[in-house]
Deep mutational scan, measured.
Amino acid sequence: NQASVVANQLIPISTHLTLVMMRSEVVTPVGIPAEDIPRLVSMQVNRAVPLGTTLMPDMVKGYA
């Protein structure tokens, strides 16, 4: 099972991601792979992401 990136807190819209905001967890459905966490740092979310939500490629500007 592959770990995905999950929000560690509420991430407001247009926030630049930091390591503190993300954790890796095995979830269904599978989202952005956990090994991409370093790549996600300083990218922006294009919507509010609630605590515990799996980050999907379409939620992060410039990821997909």
Rank of each mutant, 00 (worst) to 15 (best):
residue 36 D to L: 10
residue 59 M to V: 07
residue 51 L to E: 15
residue 25 E to H: 07
residue 24 S to R: 08
residue 21 M to S: 03
residue 38 P to K: 10
residue 57 P to A: 10
residue 15 T to M: 09
residue 33 P to H: 09
residue 19 L to A: 12
residue 32 I to F: 02
residue 58 D to Q: 12
residue 10 L to V: 11
residue 8 N to I: 05
residue 28 T to Y: 10
residue 36 D to F: 11
residue 43 M to C: 09
residue 38 P to C: 14
residue 62 G to L: 08
residue 25 E to G: 12
residue 40 L to R: 01
residue 49 V to H: 03
residue 57 P to Y: 08
residue 31 G to R: 02
residue 7 A to G: 03
residue 12 P to G: 07
residue 19 L to G: 05
residue 43 M to P: 00
residue 27 V to N: 03
residue 45 V to A: 05
residue 5 V to A: 12
residue 11 I to Y: 03
residue 8 N to R: 09
residue 58 D to A: 09
residue 17 L to S: 00
residue 23 R to N: 05
residue 50 P to Y: 14
residue 64 A to H: 13
residue 32 I to T: 01
residue 51 L to D: 11
residue 11 I to Q: 01
residue 61 K to Y: 13
residue 63 Y to K: 03
residue 16 H to E: 08
residue 33 P to S: 09
residue 50 P to V: 07
residue 31 G to V: 02
residue 39 R to P: 02
residue 39 R to D: 06
residue 36 D to R: 08
residue 23 R to K: 10
residue 57 P to L: 05
residue 26 V to I: 13
residue 27 V to L: 04
residue 7 A to N: 00
residue 19 L to I: 08
residue 2 Q to M: 11
residue 9 Q to F: 13
residue 41 V to H: 03
residue 32 I to M: 03
residue 22 M to H: 01
residue 7 A to L: 03
residue 33 P to R: 10
residue 21 M to Y: 05
residue 58 D to P: 06
residue 28 T to Q: 12
residue 30 V to Y: 14
residue 8 N to M: 06
residue 19 L to V: 06
residue 25 E to A: 13
residue 55 L to C: 03
residue 53 T to S: 10
residue 2 Q to W: 11
residue 32 I to E: 02
residue 21 M to T: 03
residue 48 A to Q: 13
residue 64 A to E: 11
residue 37 I to M: 12
residue 11 I to E: 00
residue 33 P to A: 14
residue 44 Q to I: 11
residue 20 V to I: 11
residue 11 I to A: 01
residue 46 N to R: 11
residue 60 V to N: 02
residue 3 A to C: 09
residue 57 P to M: 07
residue 62 G to Y: 09
residue 6 V to K: 03
residue 8 N to G: 06
residue 16 H to S: 14
residue 32 I to D: 00
residue 57 P to V: 06
residue 43 M to T: 04
residue 52 G to P: 01
residue 16 H to W: 10
residue 22 M to A: 00
residue 56 M to K: 08
residue 34 A to S: 13
residue 28 T to M: 10
residue 9 Q to R: 10
residue 2 Q to A: 15
residue 13 I to Y: 15
residue 3 A to L: 12
residue 64 A to Q: 14
residue 27 V to A: 07
residue 11 I to F: 02
residue 49 V to G: 01
residue 36 D to H: 14
residue 18 T to N: 05
residue 8 N to Y: 03
residue 45 V to H: 00
residue 10 L to Y: 14
residue 38 P to N: 12
residue 35 E to W: 10
residue 22 M to R: 00
residue 63 Y to N: 03
residue 33 P to Q: 06
residue 8 N to Q: 10
residue 32 I to H: 02
residue 1 N to D: 15
residue 1 N to I: 15
residue 54 T to W: 03
residue 14 S to G: 12
residue 44 Q to K: 10
residue 39 R to I: 08
residue 23 R to D: 05
residue 34 A to D: 08
residue 3 A to V: 07
residue 5 V to S: 03
residue 55 L to Y: 01
residue 22 M to Y: 01
residue 52 G to I: 03
residue 51 L to C: 11
residue 29 P to K: 05
residue 20 V to S: 14
residue 31 G to L: 02
residue 62 G to W: 08
residue 31 G to E: 01
residue 62 G to F: 09
residue 49 V to D: 02
residue 54 T to I: 09
residue 42 S to A: 14
residue 10 L to D: 14
residue 11 I to D: 00
residue 22 M to P: 00
residue 20 V to Y: 14
residue 30 V to R: 06
residue 6 V to W: 03
residue 14 S to R: 11
residue 23 R to C: 05
residue 36 D to M: 12
residue 55 L to D: 01
residue 47 R to V: 12
residue 45 V to E: 00
residue 23 R to L: 04
residue 33 P to D: 06
residue 37 I to D: 00
residue 4 S to C: 05
residue 56 M to V: 07
residue 29 P to M: 05
residue 15 T to Q: 08
residue 42 S to N: 15
residue 44 Q to V: 14
residue 51 L to Q: 13
residue 5 V to W: 02
residue 4 S to M: 02
residue 52 G to Q: 01
residue 25 E to D: 09
residue 1 N to P: 13
residue 62 G to V: 04
residue 14 S to E: 13
residue 45 V to W: 02
residue 32 I to Q: 01
residue 4 S to K: 01
residue 29 P to D: 07
residue 15 T to H: 05
residue 3 A to E: 12
residue 47 R to K: 11
residue 30 V to A: 11
residue 19 L to M: 14
residue 56 M to F: 09
residue 5 V to T: 06
residue 40 L to V: 05
residue 20 V to L: 15
residue 61 K to S: 12
residue 7 A to C: 04
residue 18 T to E: 07
residue 45 V to I: 07
residue 39 R to W: 09
residue 35 E to L: 09
residue 5 V to L: 03
residue 22 M to I: 08
residue 16 H to A: 15
residue 43 M to E: 04
residue 57 P to T: 05
residue 42 S to F: 15
residue 62 G to M: 09
residue 1 N to L: 13
residue 6 V to P: 00
residue 43 M to A: 07
residue 64 A to N: 13
residue 21 M to A: 03
residue 63 Y to M: 04
residue 63 Y to F: 09
residue 32 I to P: 00
residue 59 M to A: 08
residue 26 V to D: 15
residue 54 T to E: 02
residue 20 V to F: 15
residue 18 T to K: 07
residue 44 Q to H: 08
residue 2 Q to P: 14
residue 34 A to P: 05
residue 46 N to F: 06
residue 28 T to K: 07
residue 22 M to G: 00
residue 3 A to F: 09
residue 16 H to D: 06
residue 32 I to L: 05
residue 1 N to Q: 12
residue 45 V to S: 05
residue 35 E to A: 10
residue 39 R to C: 12
residue 54 T to G: 00
residue 18 T to Y: 03
residue 54 T to K: 04
residue 48 A to L: 14
residue 63 Y to D: 03
residue 14 S to F: 15
residue 52 G to H: 08
residue 16 H to Q: 12
residue 10 L to P: 10
residue 64 A to P: 08
residue 62 G to D: 11
residue 45 V to M: 06
residue 43 M to Y: 07
residue 16 H to P: 15
residue 31 G to F: 02
residue 11 I to N: 01
residue 8 N to V: 08
residue 28 T to A: 14
residue 61 K to V: 15
residue 56 M to A: 07
residue 9 Q to I: 11
residue 8 N to E: 07
residue 12 P to I: 04
residue 50 P to R: 11
residue 39 R to Y: 11
residue 46 N to C: 10
residue 46 N to Y: 11
residue 10 L to W: 10
residue 44 Q to P: 05
residue 30 V to K: 08
residue 47 R to G: 05
residue 52 G to M: 04
residue 39 R to A: 10
residue 36 D to V: 07
residue 28 T to P: 00
residue 21 M to K: 01
residue 61 K to E: 13
residue 55 L to V: 07
residue 60 V to R: 01
residue 57 P to R: 07
residue 28 T to G: 06
residue 45 V to Q: 00
residue 52 G to R: 04
residue 45 V to F: 02
residue 12 P to F: 04
residue 37 I to P: 01
residue 3 A to N: 08
residue 12 P to T: 08
residue 54 T to M: 03
residue 24 S to K: 10
residue 48 A to D: 15
residue 35 E to G: 08
residue 5 V to Q: 01
residue 50 P to F: 08
residue 35 E to Y: 10
residue 58 D to N: 13
residue 30 V to P: 13
residue 23 R to V: 05
residue 6 V to D: 02
residue 20 V to T: 14
residue 22 M to D: 00
residue 58 D to R: 08
residue 30 V to D: 11
residue 27 V to Y: 03
residue 52 G to K: 02
residue 22 M to V: 06
residue 29 P to G: 03
residue 48 A to M: 15
residue 1 N to T: 15
residue 17 L to A: 00
residue 56 M to E: 07
residue 7 A to I: 04
residue 51 L to I: 12
residue 37 I to F: 02
residue 41 V to K: 04
residue 59 M to T: 05
residue 60 V to F: 05
residue 17 L to P: 00
residue 64 A to G: 12
residue 38 P to R: 09
residue 37 I to K: 06
residue 20 V to K: 14
residue 41 V to T: 05
residue 13 I to H: 14
residue 31 G to S: 02
residue 11 I to W: 02
residue 26 V to F: 14
residue 9 Q to K: 10
residue 61 K to W: 14
residue 37 I to C: 05
residue 3 A to P: 12
residue 40 L to S: 00
residue 39 R to L: 10
residue 17 L to D: 00
residue 55 L to H: 01
residue 48 A to N: 15
residue 51 L to P: 09
residue 2 Q to L: 10
residue 55 L to S: 00
residue 29 P to R: 05
residue 10 L to I: 11
residue 45 V to L: 09
residue 38 P to Q: 13
residue 28 T to W: 08
residue 23 R to G: 06
residue 4 S to N: 02
residue 11 I to M: 03
residue 27 V to Q: 05
residue 38 P to M: 09
residue 2 Q to D: 14
residue 55 L to R: 02
residue 60 V to C: 03
residue 34 A to H: 06
residue 21 M to W: 02
residue 39 R to S: 10
residue 47 R to A: 07
residue 16 H to T: 14
residue 25 E to S: 09
residue 52 G to C: 04
residue 53 T to W: 14
residue 4 S to A: 02
residue 13 I to A: 15
residue 25 E to N: 09
residue 52 G to V: 02
residue 38 P to I: 11
residue 15 T to K: 06
residue 15 T to S: 11
residue 29 P to I: 06
residue 29 P to N: 05
residue 59 M to N: 05
residue 9 Q to M: 14
residue 49 V to I: 12
residue 19 L to T: 07
residue 64 A to Y: 06
residue 45 V to R: 00
residue 43 M to F: 10
residue 62 G to N: 12
residue 38 P to F: 12
residue 44 Q to S: 13
residue 29 P to Q: 05
residue 3 A to R: 07
residue 12 P to Q: 07
residue 37 I to T: 07
residue 58 D to T: 10
residue 47 R to S: 10
residue 51 L to R: 11
residue 7 A to W: 03
residue 11 I to S: 01
residue 5 V to R: 02
residue 11 I to V: 05
residue 28 T to N: 10
residue 4 S to T: 04
residue 39 R to E: 06
residue 63 Y to Q: 03
residue 41 V to S: 02
residue 58 D to S: 11
residue 14 S to N: 15
residue 26 V to C: 11
residue 17 L to H: 00
residue 53 T to K: 09
residue 27 V to C: 06
residue 53 T to P: 01
residue 29 P to V: 06
residue 12 P to M: 06
residue 22 M to Q: 00
residue 2 Q to F: 13
residue 43 M to Q: 07
residue 36 D to W: 08
residue 13 I to Q: 13
residue 57 P to D: 05
residue 20 V to H: 15
residue 9 Q to C: 10
residue 10 L to N: 15
residue 20 V to E: 09
residue 29 P to W: 04
residue 37 I to V: 06
residue 28 T to C: 10
residue 48 A to V: 14
